[in-house]
Protein backbone atom coordinates (compact mmCIF):
# COMPACT_ATOMS: atom_id res chain seq x y z
CA UNK A 1 0.00 0.00 0.00
CA UNK A 2 2.76 2.37 0.92
CA UNK A 3 4.50 1.36 -2.30
CA UNK A 4 1.55 2.69 -4.27
CA UNK A 5 1.71 5.97 -2.43
CA UNK A 6 5.30 6.72 -3.20
CA UNK A 7 5.46 7.38 -6.95
CA UNK A 8 2.52 9.78 -7.04
CA UNK A 9 3.74 11.90 -4.15
CA UNK A 10 4.56 15.42 -5.10
CA UNK A 11 4.27 14.89 -8.84
CA UNK A 12 1.51 16.66 -10.68
CA UNK A 13 0.85 16.33 -14.39
CA UNK A 14 2.28 13.87 -16.90
CA UNK A 15 4.46 10.88 -16.10
CA UNK A 16 8.09 11.72 -15.25
CA UNK A 17 9.31 10.01 -18.41
CA UNK A 18 7.18 12.21 -20.64
CA UNK A 19 8.19 15.26 -18.66
CA UNK A 20 11.89 14.52 -19.11
CA UNK A 21 11.37 13.90 -22.81
CA UNK A 22 9.56 17.21 -23.29
CA UNK A 23 12.15 19.10 -21.30
CA UNK A 24 15.01 17.48 -23.24
CA UNK A 25 13.76 19.15 -26.38
CA UNK A 26 14.29 22.50 -24.70
CA UNK A 27 17.85 21.61 -23.69
CA UNK A 28 20.02 21.31 -26.79
CA UNK A 29 23.09 20.73 -24.58
CA UNK A 30 21.58 17.59 -23.12
CA UNK A 31 20.78 16.21 -26.56
CA UNK A 32 24.19 17.12 -27.99
CA UNK A 33 26.01 15.61 -24.99
CA UNK A 34 23.99 12.43 -25.26
CA UNK A 35 24.60 12.20 -29.02
CA UNK A 36 28.39 12.55 -28.69
CA UNK A 37 28.47 10.10 -25.79
CA UNK A 38 26.44 7.55 -27.76
CA UNK A 39 28.72 8.01 -30.77
CA UNK A 40 31.85 7.39 -28.68
CA UNK A 41 30.19 4.44 -26.93
CA UNK A 42 29.29 2.84 -30.24
CA UNK A 43 32.85 3.46 -31.48
CA UNK A 44 34.20 1.80 -28.32
CA UNK A 45 31.87 -1.21 -28.52
CA UNK A 46 32.43 -1.68 -32.24
CA UNK A 47 36.20 -1.11 -31.99
CA UNK A 48 37.03 -4.67 -33.21
CA UNK A 49 34.91 -4.05 -36.32
CA UNK A 50 35.98 -0.44 -36.95
CA UNK A 51 39.70 -0.66 -36.22
CA UNK A 52 41.72 -1.18 -39.42
CA UNK A 53 44.53 -2.95 -37.54
CA UNK A 54 45.31 -4.88 -34.37
CA UNK A 55 45.98 -2.13 -31.80
CA UNK A 56 48.86 -4.16 -30.37
CA UNK A 57 50.53 -5.09 -33.67
CA UNK A 58 53.95 -3.43 -33.91
CA UNK A 59 55.49 -2.57 -37.26
CA UNK A 60 58.93 -1.14 -36.66
CA UNK A 61 59.41 -0.34 -40.34
CA UNK A 62 56.46 2.08 -40.15
CA UNK A 63 57.13 4.05 -36.98
CA UNK A 64 55.60 7.52 -36.50
CA UNK A 65 53.73 7.66 -39.80
CA UNK A 66 51.96 11.04 -39.86
CA UNK A 67 48.15 11.28 -40.12
CA UNK A 68 46.34 11.64 -43.46
CA UNK A 69 46.39 15.44 -43.65
CA UNK A 70 50.20 15.67 -43.38
CA UNK A 71 53.05 14.96 -45.80
CA UNK A 72 54.26 11.37 -45.83
CA UNK A 73 50.92 9.89 -44.75
CA UNK A 74 50.03 6.34 -45.70
CA UNK A 75 46.51 5.24 -46.62
CA UNK A 76 46.86 2.10 -44.50
CA UNK A 77 47.13 4.31 -41.39
CA UNK A 78 44.62 7.19 -41.68
CA UNK A 79 45.65 8.65 -38.30
CA UNK A 80 49.28 7.57 -38.52
CA UNK A 81 51.25 5.25 -36.25
CA UNK A 82 53.00 5.60 -32.89
CA UNK A 83 56.63 5.10 -31.86
CA UNK A 84 56.29 1.34 -32.20
CA UNK A 85 54.50 1.48 -35.55
CA UNK A 86 51.10 0.62 -34.04
CA UNK A 87 48.09 1.99 -35.93
CA UNK A 88 46.95 5.15 -34.13
CA UNK A 89 43.29 5.02 -35.20
CA UNK A 90 42.98 1.48 -33.87
CA UNK A 91 44.62 2.43 -30.59
CA UNK A 92 42.41 5.51 -30.22
CA UNK A 93 39.30 3.37 -30.79
CA UNK A 94 40.37 0.78 -28.23
CA UNK A 95 41.34 3.61 -25.90
CA UNK A 96 37.69 4.68 -25.82
CA UNK A 97 36.88 1.26 -24.32
CA UNK A 98 39.40 1.83 -21.53
CA UNK A 99 38.14 5.33 -20.69
CA UNK A 100 34.44 4.43 -20.83
CA UNK A 101 34.87 1.06 -19.13
CA UNK A 102 36.91 2.40 -16.23
CA UNK A 103 34.74 5.51 -15.93
CA UNK A 104 31.56 3.43 -15.76
CA UNK A 105 33.01 0.88 -13.33
CA UNK A 106 34.31 3.57 -10.98
CA UNK A 107 31.06 5.59 -11.17
CA UNK A 108 29.06 2.47 -10.22
CA UNK A 109 31.34 1.22 -7.45
CA UNK A 110 31.92 4.61 -5.86
CA UNK A 111 28.18 5.19 -6.23
CA UNK A 112 27.50 2.10 -4.12
CA UNK A 113 29.90 3.24 -1.41
CA UNK A 114 28.83 6.89 -1.41
CA UNK A 115 25.09 6.18 -1.59
CA UNK A 116 25.25 3.65 1.23
CA UNK A 117 27.11 6.12 3.43
CA UNK A 118 25.04 9.15 2.44
CA UNK A 119 21.64 7.48 2.85
CA UNK A 120 22.65 5.93 6.19
CA UNK A 121 23.87 9.29 7.49
CA UNK A 122 20.84 11.16 6.21
CA UNK A 123 18.25 8.63 7.43
CA UNK A 124 19.54 7.91 10.91
CA UNK A 125 21.06 11.30 11.71
CA UNK A 126 22.52 11.82 15.17
CA UNK A 127 25.74 10.05 16.06
CA UNK A 128 25.80 7.91 12.92
CA UNK A 129 25.53 11.05 10.81
CA UNK A 130 28.36 12.64 12.78
CA UNK A 131 30.68 9.69 12.25
CA UNK A 132 29.94 9.42 8.53
CA UNK A 133 30.33 13.16 8.03
CA UNK A 134 33.69 12.89 9.77
CA UNK A 135 34.76 10.14 7.38
CA UNK A 136 33.70 12.33 4.43
CA UNK A 137 35.70 15.29 5.78
CA UNK A 138 38.75 13.10 6.27
CA UNK A 139 38.48 11.71 2.76
CA UNK A 140 38.25 15.27 1.36
CA UNK A 141 41.44 16.25 3.19
CA UNK A 142 43.46 13.47 1.52
CA UNK A 143 45.13 14.60 -1.73
CA UNK A 144 43.46 12.38 -4.35
CA UNK A 145 46.10 12.16 -7.08
CA UNK A 146 48.89 11.57 -4.59
CA UNK A 147 47.08 8.89 -2.59
CA UNK A 148 45.84 7.17 -5.76
CA UNK A 149 49.36 7.09 -7.26
CA UNK A 150 50.89 5.76 -4.04
CA UNK A 151 48.16 3.16 -3.55
CA UNK A 152 48.40 1.87 -7.13
CA UNK A 153 52.21 1.73 -6.90
CA UNK A 154 52.18 -0.09 -3.56
CA UNK A 155 49.45 -2.61 -4.36
CA UNK A 156 50.79 -3.19 -7.86
CA UNK A 157 49.38 -1.62 -11.01
CA UNK A 158 46.55 -3.55 -12.69
CA UNK A 159 43.14 -2.63 -14.05
CA UNK A 160 41.42 -4.11 -10.98
CA UNK A 161 43.65 -2.20 -8.56
CA UNK A 162 43.15 1.01 -10.50
CA UNK A 163 39.36 0.73 -10.46
CA UNK A 164 39.28 -0.27 -6.79
CA UNK A 165 41.58 2.59 -5.72
CA UNK A 166 39.61 5.19 -7.68
CA UNK A 167 36.26 3.87 -6.40
CA UNK A 168 37.55 4.11 -2.83
CA UNK A 169 38.55 7.75 -3.41
CA UNK A 170 35.74 9.20 -5.54
CA UNK A 171 32.60 8.48 -3.48
CA UNK A 172 32.49 11.75 -1.56
CA UNK A 173 30.10 13.68 -3.82
CA UNK A 174 27.59 10.81 -3.78
CA UNK A 175 27.70 10.75 0.00
CA UNK A 176 27.20 14.51 0.36
CA UNK A 177 24.32 14.73 -2.15
CA UNK A 178 22.57 11.55 -0.99
CA UNK A 179 22.81 12.59 2.66
CA UNK A 180 21.13 15.92 1.99
CA UNK A 181 18.49 14.34 -0.24
CA UNK A 182 17.68 11.62 2.29
CA UNK A 183 17.33 14.18 5.07
CA UNK A 184 14.69 15.94 2.97
CA UNK A 185 12.95 12.65 2.15
CA UNK A 186 12.89 11.35 5.71
CA UNK A 187 10.14 13.62 6.94
CA UNK A 188 7.96 13.40 3.83
CA UNK A 189 4.43 12.05 4.25
CA UNK A 190 4.93 8.78 2.38
CA UNK A 191 7.89 7.84 4.57
CA UNK A 192 5.98 8.62 7.74
CA UNK A 193 3.07 6.61 6.35
CA UNK A 194 5.28 3.64 5.58
CA UNK A 195 6.65 3.79 9.12
CA UNK A 196 3.12 4.04 10.53
CA UNK A 197 1.92 0.89 8.75
CA UNK A 198 4.90 -0.96 10.24
CA UNK A 199 7.38 -1.22 7.39
CA UNK A 200 10.86 -2.21 8.50
CA UNK A 201 13.67 0.35 8.25
CA UNK A 202 15.56 -1.47 5.46
CA UNK A 203 12.30 -1.72 3.51
CA UNK A 204 11.60 1.99 3.93
CA UNK A 205 15.09 2.87 2.71
CA UNK A 206 15.10 0.49 -0.25
CA UNK A 207 11.47 0.73 -1.38
CA UNK A 208 10.48 4.26 -0.39
CA UNK A 209 13.54 6.47 -0.25
CA UNK A 210 15.98 5.10 -2.84
CA UNK A 211 13.56 5.22 -5.82
CA UNK A 212 12.99 8.89 -5.07
CA UNK A 213 16.71 9.60 -5.11
CA UNK A 214 17.19 8.02 -8.54
CA UNK A 215 17.17 11.31 -10.44
CA UNK A 216 19.82 12.91 -8.31
CA UNK A 217 21.83 9.68 -8.27
CA UNK A 218 21.97 9.62 -12.07
CA UNK A 219 23.12 13.24 -12.18
CA UNK A 220 25.93 12.66 -9.67
CA UNK A 221 26.91 9.41 -11.38
CA UNK A 222 27.27 11.22 -14.70
CA UNK A 223 29.51 13.94 -13.27
CA UNK A 224 31.50 11.38 -11.25
CA UNK A 225 32.09 9.27 -14.36
CA UNK A 226 33.69 12.31 -16.01
CA UNK A 227 35.88 12.80 -12.91
CA UNK A 228 36.94 9.16 -13.01
CA UNK A 229 37.86 9.34 -16.70
CA UNK A 230 40.04 12.41 -16.09
CA UNK A 231 41.70 10.81 -13.04
CA UNK A 232 42.42 7.59 -14.95
CA UNK A 233 43.99 9.65 -17.74
CA UNK A 234 46.17 11.56 -15.26
CA UNK A 235 47.29 8.41 -13.44
CA UNK A 236 48.03 6.62 -16.71
CA UNK A 237 49.91 9.69 -17.94
CA UNK A 238 52.11 9.50 -14.83
CA UNK A 239 52.76 5.81 -15.50
CA UNK A 240 50.78 4.44 -12.56
CA UNK A 241 47.40 3.86 -14.16
CA UNK A 242 46.64 1.64 -17.11
CA UNK A 243 49.84 -0.18 -18.03
CA UNK A 244 51.41 -0.58 -21.48
CA UNK A 245 50.66 -2.01 -23.95
CA UNK A 246 46.94 -1.44 -23.21
CA UNK A 247 45.86 1.63 -25.20
CA UNK A 248 44.67 4.26 -22.71
CA UNK A 249 44.41 7.85 -23.95
CA UNK A 250 46.34 9.13 -20.93
CA UNK A 251 49.10 6.60 -21.49
CA UNK A 252 49.22 7.43 -25.22
CA UNK A 253 49.81 11.08 -24.32
CA UNK A 254 52.68 10.02 -22.04
CA UNK A 255 54.16 7.88 -24.83
CA UNK A 256 53.85 10.79 -27.26
CA UNK A 257 55.66 13.17 -24.90
CA UNK A 258 59.06 12.20 -26.31
CA UNK A 259 57.89 13.37 -29.71
CA UNK A 260 56.38 16.67 -28.60
CA UNK A 261 58.77 18.81 -30.67
CA UNK A 262 58.18 17.31 -34.10
CA UNK A 263 55.08 15.10 -33.84
CA UNK A 264 52.73 16.94 -31.46
CA UNK A 265 49.74 15.28 -33.16
CA UNK A 266 50.62 12.11 -31.20
CA UNK A 267 49.68 14.04 -28.06
CA UNK A 268 46.94 16.13 -29.61
CA UNK A 269 44.60 13.36 -30.75
CA UNK A 270 44.14 11.31 -27.57
CA UNK A 271 43.82 14.52 -25.53
CA UNK A 272 41.23 16.00 -27.87
CA UNK A 273 39.19 12.80 -27.58
CA UNK A 274 39.41 12.98 -23.79
CA UNK A 275 38.14 16.57 -23.88
CA UNK A 276 35.31 15.59 -26.23
CA UNK A 277 34.25 12.64 -24.08
CA UNK A 278 34.39 14.51 -20.77
CA UNK A 279 32.67 17.53 -22.31
CA UNK A 280 29.87 15.30 -23.60
CA UNK A 281 29.38 13.57 -20.25
CA UNK A 282 29.46 16.85 -18.30
CA UNK A 283 27.02 18.54 -20.68
CA UNK A 284 24.71 15.55 -20.41
CA UNK A 285 25.01 15.65 -16.61
CA UNK A 286 24.32 19.40 -16.43
CA UNK A 287 21.33 18.96 -18.75
CA UNK A 288 19.94 16.05 -16.73
CA UNK A 289 20.31 18.14 -13.58
CA UNK A 290 18.34 21.01 -15.07
CA UNK A 291 15.62 18.63 -16.22
CA UNK A 292 15.39 15.97 -13.55
CA UNK A 293 16.94 17.23 -10.32
CA UNK A 294 17.32 21.01 -10.20
CA UNK A 295 17.91 20.81 -6.45
CA UNK A 296 21.32 19.12 -6.89
CA UNK A 297 22.77 22.24 -8.45
CA UNK A 298 25.73 23.43 -6.39
Amino acid sequence: MSGALAPSEGIAGPRPGARVLAASARHPGLVAGLAVLLLLTVAALAAPLLAPHDPYAQDLANRIVPPAWMDGAKTAHPLGTDHLGRDYLSRLLYGARVSLGIGLAVALLSGLIGTALGVTAGYFGGRIDMIISFVVTTRLALPIVLVALAAVALVGASLQTLVAVMALLLWDRYAVVMRAATQQMRSRAFVTAARAVGCSTPRIIVAEILPNLANQLIVVATLEMAQAILLEAALSFLGLGVQAPIPSWGLMIAEGKEHILFEPWLIFMPGALLVLLVLAINTLGDGLRDVAAPSTRA
Partner: peptide, 22 residues
Protein backbone atom coordinates in the same frame (compact mmCIF):
# COMPACT_ATOMS: atom_id res chain seq x y z
CA UNK B 1 33.83 27.09 -17.10
CA UNK B 2 32.66 24.14 -19.17
CA UNK B 3 35.96 23.65 -21.01
CA UNK B 4 37.96 24.20 -17.82
CA UNK B 5 36.21 21.20 -16.30
CA UNK B 6 36.78 18.97 -19.30
CA UNK B 7 40.41 19.61 -20.28
CA UNK B 8 42.94 17.36 -18.57
CA UNK B 9 45.49 19.75 -17.07
CA UNK B 10 48.51 17.73 -18.17
CA UNK B 11 47.28 17.79 -21.76
CA UNK B 12 46.57 21.53 -21.65
CA UNK B 13 50.11 22.00 -20.32
CA UNK B 14 51.62 19.98 -23.16
CA UNK B 15 49.54 21.82 -25.75
CA UNK B 16 50.64 25.20 -24.36
CA UNK B 17 54.24 23.98 -24.49
CA UNK B 18 53.77 23.14 -28.15
CA UNK B 19 52.09 26.46 -28.87
CA UNK B 20 54.16 28.90 -26.82
CA UNK B 21 57.41 27.01 -26.41
CA UNK B 22 57.82 25.47 -29.85
Amino acid sequence: AVTGQAIPSFWLGLMLIVLLGV
